[in-house]
Amino acid sequence: MTSSDPAGRRPKIKAASVMRSAADQLSELLGRPPESVSALRRTDDGWEADVEVLEVERIPDTTSVLASYRVMLDEEGDLVEYRRTRRYTRGQIDRPN
């Protein structure tokens, strides 16, 4: 999954692999499947991703409760930290700042 840079810089890992890794590792810890990865960015220490997870399934589906988790991964894509940053209903729309 990773390869070293000959100049000794950070290992190269593809963003798609990091997204899958973040979602899979969080799912394993929470015991719930991820809905999506809504954000991904490179940091000085690795990667940061926002993963959306279904927490309470309801009928109708628009009233189901989801949560957004901020997941921090190291340069190899291994989870080092996570926290829930938001809970919301599926039908909720964010308001502009």
Rank of each mutant, 00 (worst) to 15 (best):
R32C: 05
L79T: 07
R70Q: 13
T2V: 00
K12H: 14
Q92H: 10
N97H: 11
S21C: 07
D61K: 08
V65T: 11
E57C: 04
W47D: 02
P6L: 00
I59Y: 14
E52L: 12
Y82G: 09
P33T: 13
M19R: 09
R95K: 11
A23S: 14
A49G: 07
A67R: 12
E52H: 08
V37S: 08
T43P: 07
P11W: 00
G8I: 13
R70C: 03
A67T: 11
M72E: 10
P34N: 14
I93C: 03
E35Q: 02
T85D: 15
R86P: 02
E52D: 15
T63G: 02
L66D: 01
A7K: 02
S21N: 11
V37W: 06
M1Q: 10
E28S: 08
G46E: 00
V53K: 01
L40R: 02
A67S: 15
A67Q: 13
R9E: 10
S17Y: 05
D50I: 03
P60T: 08
L73C: 04
Y82W: 15
D94T: 09
D94R: 10
N97V: 09
V53Y: 04
I13A: 02
S21R: 08
A22P: 10
V51D: 09
G8S: 13
G91Q: 00
I59N: 14
D50F: 12
T62G: 00
N97K: 12
S4I: 03
R58N: 14
V37P: 08
D78A: 10
S21G: 13
D45V: 02
M19N: 01
A67K: 13
L26V: 11
P6I: 01
D50H: 12
R9N: 12
T43Y: 02
M19D: 05
V80T: 15
D61H: 06
S38G: 09
E75N: 08
G8F: 15
L30R: 09
L30D: 06
